[in-house]
Design a protein around this nucleic acid. Structure first.
Length: 419
RNA sequence: GAGCCUGUAGCUCAGUCGGUUAGAGCGCUAGUUUGUGGCACUAGAGGCCGUGGGUUCAAUUCCCAUCAGGCUCCCCA
């Protein structure tokens, strides 16, 4: 074999036939659980306008400053979507989905793109599923969102995780807090990491999220946003905690939890797993009450989350969770000679019409090779057809698991599979 | 953007203290009673030993560069 001339781009991967059943299994679970929550699926284009992503996610975020795939064609700026909250909100505004009435409970599954340096659990094309509930500021929306997220992991069988939540406050609370935080950090400014110094003016809260060792001491003793929430934000947050307890969803309050996107307000949450290694976030989300307006719609509160499917698969791998059964086919036609092969070809549809999966050899191989192939394909039965069988109208149906054979007419075979 | 590591068959990996035709296991193909799979046995196909340069009588092996990949920091799902 020659060595491949063309390969996938760095950090982008094919999902091969041995892997795709796992993906299907996860996707099926997501669709089923979403149906139970009465969430509706939304699909948006892979590419969006660059400006939407910049405004939506925030000009200063890492995602926008260094991780987007963007290009220009004619007068248009295109960007491969790095996440789906801004695009879903764009769609909501563009198509006036608020006119459908009530709150919009949307979910999605699909590929996202970020131009990062790949490593375990981090790719350039990766897949997320998520939910966006647009049009409700009720704590119930936040909690349903979290409940859906947790439900998926529970159903798959991942139990080892840590749900952290926090409130990053509404703009009013946040302004108060930012001032307090800046006042607290100012005397230590010179000792902060370079990155944190950069964030000091524009986005001091992200400093809390810093992993730089020199920042830790100041972070530990920093004032906590929880102490500066206004009454409305505080009530909302407390209500979420109450509801979560009533639903028996375990969580910890993490006052340092601040999320990467600029659009988050009030609720922020993150699900991490010890089974993932370095990139340990399974899912994250929160409330973004200002984003709809930012993108040009009416002021509309919203909450959502996004979860990484590759990371979910890594966790399943670590935990030895079987997502999909091994491949198999109900019946494999072992046909010998041209007449028999033609008969097989024209009889396959009869079985398939009954919902039976049926296949045959495409290579004109020997009987032995066909049996081997049937075994490899994990066929439950083989149907052996040669000139004798065709003449007599009776065929050998071999049960591959039990290694016994019956001589049956086609009608008998069809009724046999009716069971 | 920074650090560490790795490139030998489709896959997982040996190996050559520099020396003629480069190895294993798995997988693939064919055969072991001409119409019966899994087990076993036999045979076969399949490698520019990542690429370029240097040292040398001789390089897959040593040196340099380069490319590709992996992991980590950062960041995020």
């Amino acid at each position: 074999m020659a060595k491949p001339i063309y390969t996938t781009h760095l950090g982008m991967f094919d999902i091969l036939p041995d892997e795709s059943p796992k993906w299907r299994a996860i996707e099926d679970i997501i669709h089923e659980e979403a149906a139970k929550f009465n969430f509706e699926e939304i699909r948006t284009p892979i590419m969006e306008q660059t400006e939407l992503i910049k405004r939506g996610i925030g000009q200063l975020t890492d995602i926008v400053t260094k991780e987007i795939f963007a290009f220009t064609k004619g007068d248009s700026n295109y960007v491969l979507r790095p996440e789906l909250t801004a695009p879903v909100v764009r769609s909501f505004v563009e198509h006036h989905l608020d006119q459908r009435g009530g709150s919009q409970k949307l979910y999605y599954i699909g590929p996202m793109f970020r131009a990062e340096r790949p490593q375990k659990g981090r790719q350039r094309q990766f897949h997320q599923f998520g939910v966006e509930i647009i049009g409700s500021n009720d704590a119930i929306a936040d909690v349903e969102c979290i409940a859906f997220m947790m439900g998926i992991y529970k159903r798959i069988g991942i139990k080892n995780f840590n749900l952290k939540i926090n409130s990053v406050g509404d703009p009013e609370s946040r302004d108060t807090y930012k001032t307090v935080l800046r006042d607290y950090l100012k005397p230590h400014f010179q000792k902060l990491s370079e990155l944190s110094q950069k964030r000091f003016e524009k986005n001091p809260m992200r400093i809390l999220d810093s992993k730089e060792p020199e920042d830790q001491e100041f972070i530990k003793n920093a004032p906590i946003i929880g102490d500066f929430l206004n009454e409305e934000s505080e009530t909302h947050f407390n209500l979420i905690c109450d509801y979560l307890k009533k639903l028996d969803i375990e969580f910890t309050i993490d006052p340092l939890l601040v999320r990467g996107m600029d659009y988050y307000t009030r609720t922020a949450f993150e699900l991490t797993s010890p089974d993932l290694g370095s990139q340990d976030a399974l899912a994250g989300g929160g409330r973004y009450d200002l984003l709809v307006e930012e993108i040009g719609g009416q002021p509309t509160p919203a909450v959502g989350f996004a979860a990484g499917i590759e990371r979910l698969l890594i966790a399943c791998e670590e935990l030895n969770i079987t997502l999909a059964e091994p491949k198999s086919v109900d019946i494999y036609f072992v046909a010998l000679g041209e007449t028999a092969r033609t008969w097989a070809l024209t009889t396959l549809p009869t079985l398939r019409k009954k919902g039976i999966s049926a296949t045959m050899d495409y290579l004109g191989r020997s009987m032995r090779a066909q049996m081997k192939d049937a075994n490899r394909e994990n066929a439950n039965f083989t149907l052996i057809v040669g000139d004798n069988e065709l003449e007599e109208g009776k065929f050998t149906l071999r049960n591959m698991k039990e290694s016994d054979e019956k001589l049956l007419s086609l009608d008998d075979i069809l009724t046999f599979f009716d069971r």
